[in-house]
Design a protein around this nucleic acid. Structure first.
Length: 493
RNA sequence: GGCGGCAUGGCCAAGUGGUAAGGCAGAGGAUUGCAAAUCCUUUACCCCCAGUUCGAAUCUGGGUGCCGCCUCCA
């Protein structure tokens, strides 16, 4: 069985065959670094991280390039708001992006080009397009002539003729007046006072958004790449324009497979900065949700479908992750054994096969996760028995069959980027689930004293008193958990 | 208005012709002084209507509802 992917270009599920056998070149549209990333970005980059890990696991040599858009109106606006510079805003948000991705266990791209460092490639590409008559300069700007390019609209399924009416409804602007056709888009924007600009044959200015990707793809990976990735909201106009620019210049197909991920929704609506309904990755993680919970949450749905972000669904993922994590912990502690796939027991070989079949089917991570949960089930049970001091369970877990099952679980979880976490997480989702600010929390010493008192009450079989202490602490946000052997643990909720 | 997509149990979500994966929640049981945690067991006929077929959640037609893109956006 081979990997099949839904190609936006054809809207069909197609067998994946790289241009060069055994090698895959991937370009992923990165972020515009004007602010922190939110859950929509997390979902997208987690999905593509899984694609990449799966290709590597399948034996491909993958080259993964992802850009930073660090020249943009939004960055300039942000810099103006805070009285800093475009560079300062970009640097800060790039650092934050790297940190957020690392927390989510997303593999760093092989190369991360920036628009500000790709000016030569951008100017050269624009020059080529102008020379070929695919683009024209107008008053310091350079525009791509959409009507000159046969095939414009092939990715998004648009017909320019049918789009005319809408274009007529657009707000007229100076820029619109310079265009030969309303759908023409800027490759180069003449500089405005006070804005950063670069020299060019068409006068000082800065590149448009779409051209940077075309230039970077060509510079980093060549005229034709295997896979181009991005959010579904980039299909039009960004990717459509990218195709037009690149293909007009090179005469070659830009990318053979176009993959797009579905949006993260909140209350049925797309999470976005402009709607203001977003949660940043770090706000969520800092609220106590573990990175792996977020990963599991996004991977439970198919990458192409919209994913509704709700507190309930996140909590479900947190609980699910807890179980998987326990199994992974036990597996990781198991003796090191050879993981030769050929030597697997029939049931494990079948599980591995089902996992691969699921992933081959357009990255069906939901079905792949079902395999993980099934593998994890007995391990999780043993892990919990061991935690309770069950010696027999430890012996059971050490049997070759279960150790091998654990190794397989670790391996497959790794393909999804799911990594064992040591610290327990709080199930809180960050929106005021803690105790109110007015309630003073007791000190550790006070809690310990209460626990000692309760143990005395229990020893005296005065359960009413023992329960009263537990309830009192509970009211202060302290939860008591009795463990075997008379040990009582506690945690602040 | 144009283009594209989705509709499966209380919630999330797989399944694209042969009588519904998985996770969460719920229920019953075990364990516990009681809880919590844990373990075991268990819960659906697939938006509506009409077709195709021996047989459809799965194909066709119609309807309803929802979402994305058409402006920056993962």
């Amino acid at each position: 069985m081979t990997l099949k992917l839904t190609n936006t270009l054809t809207r069909r599920l197609e067998p994946f065959e790289p241009l060069v056998p055994g090698q895959v070149s991937i370009y992923c549209c990165g972020v515009t670094v004007y602010d922190l990333c939110h859950l929509g970005h997390a979902r997208s980059y987690i999905a593509w991280d899984v694609l990449r890990r799966y290709l590597i696991w399948s034996g491909y040599a993958v080259t993964f390039v992802q850009n930073y858009t660090d020249i943009d109106d939004k960055i300039l606006n942000r810099a103006a708001e805070e009285g800093s510079s475009m560079e300062a805003v970009s640097e800060r948000n790039i650092d934050a992006f790297v940190a957020d991705m690392a927390r989510l266990n997303i593999l760093p791209p092989d190369r991360m080009p920036r628009a500000t460092e790709s000016l030569a490639a951008i100017r050269s590409l624009i020059g080529e397009l102008v020379a070929k008559g695919a683009a024209y300069s107008a008053d310091g700007d350079v525009y791509f002539a959409v009507m000159q390019h046969a095939g414009y609209g092939k990715l998004s399924g648009r017909d320019l003729g049918e789009q005319q009416d809408n274009a007529a409804g657009r707000v007229a602007s100076e820029e619109e007046a310079r265009k030969q056709h309303p759908f023409d888009f800027a490759l180069w924007k003449g500089s405005k006072p006070g804005e950063p600009s670069w020299e060019s044959p068409w006068g000082p200015g800065r590149p448009g958004w779409h051209i940077e990707c075309s230039a970077m793809v060509r510079e980093e990976l060549g005229d034709t790449i295997d896979i181009h990735l991005g959010g579904a909201d980039l299909v039009f106009p960004h990717h459509e324009n990218e195709i037009a620019q690149s293909e007009a210049a090179s005469g070659q197909e830009l990318a053979r497979y176009w993959l797009h991920n579905g949006m993260v929704n909140v209350g049925g609506q797309k999470m976005s900065k402009s709607l203001g309904n977003f949660t940043t990755i770090r706000a969520l993680l800092d609220s106590g949700v573990s990175p792996m919970t977020l990963r599991l949450f996004t991977l439970q749905a198919h990458y192409r479908k919209p994913l509704d972000f709700t507190a309930e669904a996140l909590e479900a993922a947190a609980t699910g992750w807890k179980g998987l994590n326990a199994a992974l912990g036990l597996a990781a502690s198991g003796a090191a054994i050879a993981t030769d796939p050929a030597g697997l027991a029939p049931e494990l070989a079948a599980a591995r096969q089902r996992f691969a079949a699921a992933m081959d089917d357009d990255l069906n991570t939901s079905a792949a996760l079902a395999v993980l949960f099934e593998l994890a089930k007995p391990l999780r049970a043993l892990a919990n028995r061991i935690e309770r001091g069950d010696g027999a369970a430890a012996a059971e877990a050490a049997t070759p069959a279960l150790v091998a099952q654990g190794k397989l679980l670790l391996e497959l979880a790794g393909v999804l980027g799911l990594q064992q976490e040591r610290a327990a997480e709080s199930p809180a989702t960050g929106s005021g689930s803690g105790s109110g600010p007015g309630v003073a929390s007791p000190s550790d010493a006070e809690i310990e004293a209460q626990i000692t008192a309760r143990q005395a009450a229990k020893a005296a079989k005065d359960f009413a008193a023992a329960d009263a202490i537990r309830l009192a602490l509970q009211a202060q946000g302290i939860e008591l958990i009795d463990k075997p052997g008379g040990i009582t643990e506690w945690l602040r909720s």
